[in-house]
């Protein structure tokens, strides 16, 4: 696999998998209004995943975006493990999404400066969406954090539970290094400081304590996952796998 192909696939996979998780909320939201809001975010992410997968498929030359989404095993998926974590209760989902939105804002701001025109164009479009997603999740974090005692406890636990998965946002490996050197990719390591202060600001407002960076989970760049991805894929890919000759 070419480096650029892999680089794009990693971004695409995180987007696709977290979109999939959000889509599981459909008909289960705490209010009907929020059901619609979560579907909107999921659709934005799905659109972005589609654009990125198409680009990756184009570089590959022999595959389609659908092949990439529906015909790879979990070991060939490179999404952040944060994205595959279960929806849990509404607070778990909001925290997962909020942390990812903060990362995405900073990441796509940098990627919009990429020398690669396609990546830059996708990023510019994505940024508009991300700003809204972050506005939405930011509002929820504050309301749940500063709502009732129960909601504060619940969402603090959500935060404590998922924190160890945020380390992957800021890792770089040899593939990344080459792409960064070519001024196409983003040096994720450099995003950590801004991400911390973005997250800190909201957590303080929400009366939540930021967990420490310890026992951080790693591995997704090599296709290592928590086992949850396997469940997602067995559901998501069930039709193309069961009927390989069918066209949908």
């Amino acid at each position: 696999m070419q480096d650029l192909e892999k680089y794009i696939l990693r971004i695409a996979d995180s987007t696709l998998i977290i979109s999939h998780r959000l889509s599981e909320w459909c008909s289960k939201g705490p209010t009907l209004e929020e059901d619609i809001a979560l579907a909107n975010i999921s659709l934005d992410l799905l659109g972005r995943a589609n654009a990125l997968l198409e680009y990756s498929a184009k570089i590959n030359g022999n595959k389609t975006a659908n092949d990439l989404a529906f015909r790879r095993d979990d070991r060939e998926f490179y999404n952040f493990q944060l994205c595959e974590q279960e929806n849990g209760h509404f607070g778990d989902t909001i925290i997962r999404q909020f942390l990812y939105d903060c990362f995405s804002l900073l990441f796509f701001q940098e990627l919009s400066k990429s020398k690669d025109e396609t990546l830059s164009a996708i990023s510019i479009k994505s940024l508009k969406e991300i700003k809204y997603h972050l506005r939405h999740t930011h509002n929820w974090v504050i309301r749940l954090g500063d709502g009732t005692e129960t909601s504060n406890q619940k969402i603090q636990e959500s935060l404590n539970k998922i924190w160890k998965f945020t380390g992957e946002f800021f890792e770089t490996d040899d593939v990344d290094k080459k792409i960064i050197e070519n001024k196409i990719g983003v040096d994720n390591k450099k995003l950590k400081k801004d991400w911390d202060s973005l997250v800190d600001k909201v957590l303080t407002e929400a009366k939540l304590k930021k967990p420490e960076d310890k026992d951080m989970i790693t591995g997704s760049k090599e296709g290592i996952h928590t086992g949850l991805l396997e469940n997602i894929l067995s559901e998501m890919q069930c039709l193309p796998r069961a009927y390989p000759d069918a066209k949908w």
Binding site: A39, S42, L46, C238, W248
Partner: peptide, 26 residues
Amino acid sequence: WITRAPSLRAKMILLAKVQDEAGHGL
């Protein structure tokens, strides 16, 4: 079936459609 839709296009369409139903309910 949103989480089981067999293509990216089908997934998008179905999610948007079911979301519309929530909207129409509202």
